[in-house]
Design a protein around this nucleic acid. Structure first.
Length: 479
RNA sequence: GGUGGGUUGGCCGAGAGGCGAGGCAACGGACUGCAAAUCCGUCUACACGGGUUCAAAUCCCGUACCCACCUCCA
C-alpha cells in the first residue's frame, strides 16, 4: 500500500507521488509569534511532525520547512501595548514556542526561516509579480503594493470559490485597491504609528512585507518553485494559502502538489483563540499531564477531526497511554530485550491511509494485549513465547517511535540538569527500604503492618504493585 | 450570500454499503493474604424524517442543531 493523503485542493484522498523519487519537500505554516502558545497552536506542529516521521519511516528523504512569522500587525500592536520593542516580543514568544515544541518532542525542522530574514527574497518576488502584471504599487502614495486578483483567472481555485461570491472585507481599506479583494504584498511604513525598526527599504519606499508573501518567498527559496506538500491549520486555507498559491503560481511556479490542513482543538465549542484565560497555555497544561501524554492525546485523534479539548478527556488519554507504558515496563522487568520488529501491517496500512493515527493507536493496543498475554503465561520458558514477546516489545516501540511517543526515547527520559533522575533515585532508595519492611511483615503474615506501610507510601502518591519479581513502585496515575 | 466540516454507546474517539476499531468508566470471572497490574467475558451505538438496496452508521433527498473560513487566526 502506498501513502495516500487527503488533499484539500482537490477534496479527495490521493496517492502520494513525490516530485522526485524518494524525496519529500514539505512546507508548514508555523506561528506568528505574538503570544504564548496554547494547546491548539501546537496541535498543528504535532500533526505535521507525525507526517514527517512517517515519511521518514517510509524511506523518504524529507526536507521539512516550518516558518516563523516574526513581523505583523498584531506583534506591533501588542508590543506597543506592552511598551517594549516588537522584536523583543517576537523573540520571547519564539523561545516560548520552541520550549513547547520541545516539551512535545516535535522534531526541529530542517530549517525554520523567519520572515524578517527574507525581505530581499520577498522584494524580488514582488518585483517579478509587478513585471508580469499581477501586482501594482498603490497609486495613493501609501507605499503599499497589492496583488491584482482579477489578473489571475485561477484565483479561488484552492478553496473553490469564485471571486464574485466572496464578501469583501468590511474593514479592508479600499484606498488604492483596484478590487476590494486585492491583498497586500507590501505595506508602506506608517511613520506616525509604526517604529522605523519595523520597516525595510524597498523600491516602493520603506515598508514591511504583507502576510502571505513570506511563505511564497521562503518556500520557493528552500524547496523550489514546485514542492510536494504544504500544510497548516484549516483557518489558513483562506485567505493565506489561497493567496500564497495565487502569487506563487502567478510568478510562474507550480507550488505545492498537495495541501494538508489540520482541524482545530476547540474549547466550549469555540476556537481556542477566542477563549479567555491562560489555562490552556502549553506550560499550564503540562502541570497536569506529561508532555508525552499531551502528545498522545493529540495523536490519538485524526488530524482532520475537531478535538473538543477537556481536561477529563486529556486525563483519560493519559491513563490509556500509561497502559502502553506499563506493558513496556513489565516486559523490561521480565528481562525481555526488544528486537527490531517490522511494523505490523495494520499499523502501516492505517498510517498510509491519510495518517490514520486512531487506527494506528488501536494497532498498538492490540500488540500490547498480545504481549501482556505472553507476559502472563505461567512460565516464559517457551523460546517461542520469549521470541514473540521480544517481537511485540520491538513492534510497540517501533510504532510509538513513528508517532513520537516511545517512552524510552532519550528525549523523554532526559531532563536538563538530571535533577529529576537523582530525585527518582533518592525516592527509590527510600521506598525500597519501606518495601523491605513490608515484605518482612508479609512473610510473617502480619498483613495489618504490611498494609499500613503500603498506605503510608500511597499517601506520598506512590503506588505499589506486587509482581513475581517483587514489589514495584510507580507514581500514582491520577492527577 | 458563498465555501468547507460536523452530529456515533455512560465518556473519549475510529469507521464510510455486508465480518461488533481502540481506550476510559462500569459490571462479572481468573490471579492476589487483600490490593494493584494483567488476562477472559459483559455492556451491540451511529441527530431526526423519508428514500435507494437483498443489505445503510456508511449512498440519495429533506429537516434540525453545531463549528470554521470569506483578505494579516494553528
Amino acid at each position: 500500500m502506498t501513502l495516500r493523503l487527503y488533499d484539500t485542493a482537490t477534496g479527495a484522498v490521493r496517492d502520494f507521488v513525490p516530485l522526485h523519487a524518494g524525496k519529500a519537500g514539505i512546507y508548514v505554516c508555523g506561528l506568528t509569534v505574538q503570544s504564548e502558545p496554547h494547546v491548539g497552536h501546537v496541535r498543528s506542529a504535532v500533526n505535521f511532525d507525525v507526517l514527517r516521521r512517517w515519511l521518514g519511516a517510509s524511506g523518504y528523504d524529507v526536507t521539512f520547512i516550518r516558518n516563523i512569522t516574526d513581523i505583523d500587525d498584531k506583534i506591533l500592536t501588542k508590543a506597543a501595548e506592552q511598551g517594549r520593542p516588537w522584536y523583543n516580543l517576537a523573540y520571547d514568544m519564539k523561545r516560548e514556542l520552541d520550549r513547547a515544541y520541545d516539551d512535545l518532542h516535535v522534531l526541529p525542522p530542517t530549517y525554520e526561516p523567519a520572515a524578517t530574514g527574507h525581505v530581499p527574497e520577498m522584494i524580488e518576488l514582488i518585483e517579478k509579480l509587478i513585471g508580469l502584471g499581477h501586482a501594482y504599487p498603490a497609486p495613493d502614495g501609501s507605499g503599499d503594493v497589492y496583488f491584482d486578483v482579477r489578473s489571475w483567472a485561477a484565483y479561488g481555485e484552492l478553496t473553490h470559490q469564485g471571486i464574485d461570491d466572496m464578501e469583501a472585507a468590511e474593514d479592508a481599506d479600499p484606498r488604492g485597491k483596484r478590487d476590494p479583494r486585492d491583498f497586500a504584498l507590501w505595506k508602506g511604513w506608517k511613520q506616525a504609528t509604526e517604529p522605523e525598526t519595523a520597516s525595510w527599504p524597498a523600491p516602493w519606499g520603506r515598508g514591511r512585507p504583507g502576510w502571505h508573501i513570506e511563505c511564497s518567498a521562503m518556500a520557493g527559496k528552500y524547496l523550489g518553485s514546485a514542492f510536494d506538500i504544504h500544510g497548516g491549520g484549516v483557518d489558513l486555507r483562506f485567505p493565506h494559502h489561497e493567496n500564497e498559491q495565487a502569487q506563487s503560481r502567478a510568478a510562474g511556479g507550480d507550488f505545492a502538489s498537495y495541501w494538508l490542513h489540520n482541524a482545530w482543538i476547540t474549547t466550549s465549542g469555540e476556537k481556542m483563540s477566542k477563549s479567555l484565560g491562560n489555562s490552556l497555555l502549553v506550560p499550564e497544561v503540562l502541570k497536569k499531564v506529561r508532555g508525552i501524554e499531551l502528545r498522545y492525546y493529540m495523536v490519538a485523534a485524526h488530524y482532520r477531526s475537531h478535538v473538543e479539548f477537556s481536561f477529563e478527556a486529556l486525563e483519560d488519554a493519559a491513563i490509556a497511554f500509561r497502559r502502553i507504558e506499563n506493558f513496556l515496563e513489565r516486559a523490561e522487568l521480565a528481562g525481555v530485550e526488544a528486537v527490531d520488529a517490522e511494523l505490523p501491517e495494520v499499523f502501516r496500512n492505517a498510517m498510509d491511509d491519510d495518517l490514520g493515527t486512531p487506527a494506528a493507536v488501536g494497532a498498538i493496543f492490540d500488540t500490547v494485549r498480545l504481549g501482556n498475554r505472553l507476559l502472563g503465561a505461567d512460565d516464559l520458558e517457551d523460546p517461542q513465547d520469549v521470541a514473540d514477546l521480544a517481537g511485540a516489545v520491538g513492534a510497540v516501540r517501533g510504532m510509538l517511535a513513528v508517532l513520537g511517543l516511545d517512552p524510552a526515547d532519550p528525549h523523554w527520559t532526559q531532563d536538563g540538569g538530571g535533577s529529576s533522575e537523582r530525585l527518582t533515585h533518592a525516592v527509590d532508595v527510600l521506598v525500597r527500604g519501606l518495601l523491605d519492611q513490608r515484605q518482612t511483615a508479609r512473610a510473617a503474615k502480619d498483613f495489618a503492618a504490611a498494609d499500613l506501610i503500603r498506605d503510608q507510601i500511597a499517601a506520598a502518591g506512590i503506588e505499589i504493585e506486587d509482581t513475581p519479581a517483587g514489589p514495584r513502585w510507580t507514581m500514582e496515575s491520577s492527577s
